[in-house]
Amino acid sequence: MPKRARQTPEINSSSMADIAFLLLIFFLVTTTIANDKGLFLLLPPDPDQLEDLDIKIPERNLFKIQINSADRLLVENEPLTDTDELKGMIREFVLNNGRDPESSDNPQKAIVSLKTDRGTTQKKFIEVLDQIKGAYHDIYAGRAGVSNKKWRELAADHTDPEDDRLYEMGRGVLPDGKPEIPMNISIAEPTKIGG
């Protein structure tokens, strides 16, 4: 009898690691790391509820980018082969401030218009949209004195007062509360020329 009482009640835990490994492998296989990253865009309101306002925008304030069904680019009515050149062109256009009479009056009025065909692939569209976004992000980041990457983090979440200050510095605030350099991207209804 005393022999039994002396036995220490110990559970063998050497297989604990194996059990944990099994669970770990299960989760590794069944899950995907959520990927909610991409290019954000705000669509215009419902076309049926918009009043038929025929606003004339002067040609100089429009930066026209057209893509046809063969994924070829036409920028300001001239063909362009290297998409990477767009970023610099948009930057110059937005920050023109009336210097060049052919380019925009000021950043508030500058609009980048992107028109595609129904046959344009999403790949090309994203490539061009990326360039437009990049141009604006670079402008903002330069004004706020942060890196482009840091700026994009700020834009997603600027609840921290310091972040908010930088965010306002980058975009600039006009007396009426509107941003000094708004991101005016217009995505037009695609044409139906190509299949």
């Binding site: 991409g38 954000f40 669509l43 595609t116 046959g119 569209f125 990326d130």
Partner: peptide
């Protein structure tokens, strides 16, 4: 193709879900 996607975008505008993210 952009044709289909712009149709989707038009419907989203009508449904008043205007915030859009193209995953890349």
């Amino acid at each position: 193709k952009r044709g289909l996607i712009s149709d989707v975008e038009l419907q989203l505008r009508k449904a008043n879900a205007r915030k859009l993210l193209y995953t890349t």
